[in-house]
Amino acid sequence: MDRLSALLERFHVRASLFHTGPLCGRTTYEAQPDRAFLHVLRRGQLRIEHGVRKGVPRRMVVDEPTLLLYPRALHHSFINPPREGSDFTCATLQFAGGDRNPIVAALPPLLQVPLDAVPGLRPALDLLFAETDQVRCGSRLLADRLFEVVLIQLLRWVIDHPQAVGVSSGLVMGLSDPRLARALVALHGAPQDDWTLSKMAAVAGMSRSAFAEAFKTVTGTTPSAYLTDWRLTLASTLLRTGQPQKLVAAELGFSSGSSLSRAFRQRFGAAPREWLAAQV
């Protein structure tokens, strides 16, 4: 069962390499809306300082090759030895939908994962480092794509080990449960279908009551609320591309454009047209 592809096909992510090599002294990364970071500490010891943010330590030390993913805007500073420094390869990430991206919303503010913890990661990193360590035709573009491969491998590992990165509820926990994952993958792939509780439970291979209870316990929301939120998140992305409201409503299973508008106002506090005007 492929638990990631439907999410990533609906909500693309683009990586952009911006640094490779040693960093010496203090390097600060400012928090900017809808900009994420993926740092690969290849060698050396690193001290990190964060601004005040729930779920993130003010200071921490990393002393082994590690992936550091900041999925949302978060001010952070790296402090390295002043001369020899530590080796990094770093990229910014742009998740479609920004903080509304369901993957971004489901992750903690910082993921710290040793490179050796993720099976199969080393070959992709070897290719990435080979492209970033020397300039060849297409190296920058290929490095960007390889960073995206590394991110997908990391997300795959996180879904299989959610508690290792501090995830205890939400979408990631739902995808880590084999029964709930079957229902979630089906919802993600066909949001326009008539998803009754009975139909969702049948896909999961559970009774209605057991499914509803397990879904709420694991994800923190009800199946119907999750489905509505998923449809509205998709709607916000489609509307931003210029698709007409009526067509978006039909594509996502709303009975009419006005039905989408009512649900959209409840979720975002504004009708689609007003919301779109505020995004400019």
Rank of each mutant, 00 (worst) to 15 (best):
A270G: 05
R83F: 06
P81I: 07
H188V: 03
V118N: 05
L238S: 10
R42T: 13
L17F: 12
F11Y: 14
A164W: 07
I103T: 06
L128H: 05
H188L: 04
N80Y: 07
R35G: 02
L142Q: 09
L232Q: 08
D126A: 14
Y226V: 05
V118P: 01
A270H: 04
G257A: 05
L4A: 08
M60K: 14
N101P: 08
L46G: 09
D133T: 15
D193R: 14
R240P: 02
A250W: 14
P65F: 07
A271W: 13
T233I: 00
L155W: 02
A201I: 12
V13P: 02
R10P: 06
N80F: 11
V13H: 01
G97M: 02
A249L: 08
T222V: 14
E131C: 06
G174E: 01
A249M: 10
F147L: 09
G257S: 12
P81N: 10
G166V: 00
A124Y: 00
S176M: 07
H75T: 00
K199P: 03
D144F: 04
L142E: 12
S224N: 09
L127C: 11
S5I: 04
D193N: 07
P119C: 11
C24G: 08
A249P: 10
A106K: 04
H188T: 03
A270R: 01
V167S: 07
H161K: 02
L171V: 04
A117S: 13
G257C: 13
S176L: 13
K216F: 12
R10T: 05
L4W: 00
T233K: 14
L69D: 02
S258R: 15
D63K: 01
R265L: 03
A105E: 07
H161D: 02
Q279Y: 13
V113T: 13
T66S: 10
D144A: 10
H161C: 06
A6Q: 11
V135W: 05
Q163D: 00
D144S: 08
L227Y: 03
Q245M: 13
L187A: 10
A130V: 10
A210E: 07
T66P: 11
T237H: 12
G51T: 08
A250I: 01
Q279M: 14
L276T: 06
I48P: 04
R208M: 04
D87M: 09
T196S: 15
V172I: 09
P82L: 14
T217H: 03
L155S: 05
E251D: 10
F215P: 00
L141Q: 15
A130I: 06
L46F: 04
A202K: 07
P223G: 09
S261Q: 12
T237F: 12
R145C: 13
R59D: 01
F215A: 00
L17Q: 12
T20P: 11
T222D: 00
R35I: 15
T20R: 07
A214M: 05
L68I: 02
V203Y: 12
H50E: 00
E49R: 15
W157Y: 08
V185I: 14
P22R: 09
P65A: 06
P119M: 04
E30C: 11
D194Q: 04
R72G: 03
V113I: 12
T28D: 08
R267K: 15
S259E: 12
W157K: 00
A183H: 01
P123R: 06
Q94E: 10
T237V: 10
L184T: 12
N101G: 01
S16V: 14
G189K: 10
V13I: 03
R43C: 07
S261P: 09
R83L: 15
L125V: 10
